[in-house]
């Protein structure tokens, strides 16, 4: 079988806040199988975002080892991490997801452009995916001209359009009404089922948790529960 998509081994992350050391993550051991659909939940400040940061190579752990796509990312250089993110990982952030000077379509095309996809092809793909997330007719709008929910859908469209092996999403439904949220989750599950994309999603939303195959609960930077669902 495939190797796990993500392995965290004794991962620690300490933030120094003045005199105070904040242990955002302490001794996290976690293995996420390829094709997993994992939900991270837990109270505010429990370390969900921090853990996603570590897995996405956006920040470095204070201790422990992290392996993504069989690569020890805690040891990689900035430029190598950028390369890995570009070709392997899709992101949906909690907020501030889009490049303000690019319109919806250009934002979706951005990553494909960095990957070197031909113009005609990425244009077609972007138009299709935007229609799928319900933004037909809004392709040429800049982020400032879209609602929070619409912006979030553009971000999801951008994350899934190039079909990366791993998608990390931080509260992707936070700004969405339940109908849109449901539709979005459906799309993610489809992608997961049909092409085996691995998802790691942090959320407070019960709806999102109901879609998860595996539900991990964090508290004070530790995994306190790990439940397989369905």
């Amino acid at each position: 079988m495939n190797n796990p998509a993500v392995i965290c081994h004794k991962v620690d992350k300490t933030f120094q806040q003045g005199e105070l050391a904040v242990h955002a993550l302490s001794g996290v051991d976690l293995e996420i199988a390829s094709g997993g659909f994992v939900c991270l939940s837990g109270p505010s400040g429990s370390g969900k975002t921090t853990l996603l940061n570590m897995i996405g190579g956006l920040d470095r752990p204070s201790g422990g080892e992290i392996t993504v796509a069989d690569l020890r990312i805690d040891r990689m250089r900035m430029s190598e991490l950028a390369e890995l993110r570009l070709h392997h990982i899709g992101f949906v952030f909690q907020a501030y997801n889009l490049i303000p000077v690019l319109n919806a379509r250009e934002n979706v095309e951005f990553v494909m452009q960095l990957q070197g996809v031909a113009a005609a092809k990425r244009h077609a793909l972007a138009m299709d995916i935007l229609e799928e997330v319900g933004l037909k007719g809004m392709e040429e709008r800049r982020p400032g001209e879209l609602s929070g929910g619409q912006q979030q859908r553009v971000a999801v469209a951008r994350a899934i359009v190039s079909k990366p092996a791993l998608i990390l999403a931080d509260e992707p439904t936070a700004n969405l009404d339940s109908a849109t949220a449901e539709k979005l989750m459906q799309q993610m599950r489809d992608l997961n089922t049909h092409i085996g994309t691995t998802f790691v999603i942090s959320t407070h939303d019960k709806l999102v948790m109901s879609y998860a195959k595996r539900l991990i609960k964090l508290h004070d930077g530790k995994i306190v529960d790990d439940i397989a669902q369905q």
């Binding site: 900035m78 430029s79 950028a82 993110r85 992101f91 960095l114």
Partner: peptide
């Protein structure tokens, strides 16, 4: 700052 962070997070090389 945030925006440049976003570009990097999305995989834009520092160069």
């Amino acid at each position: 700052t945030r925006e440049i962070g976003l570009l990097q997070a999305l995989g834009m090389p520092p160069a």
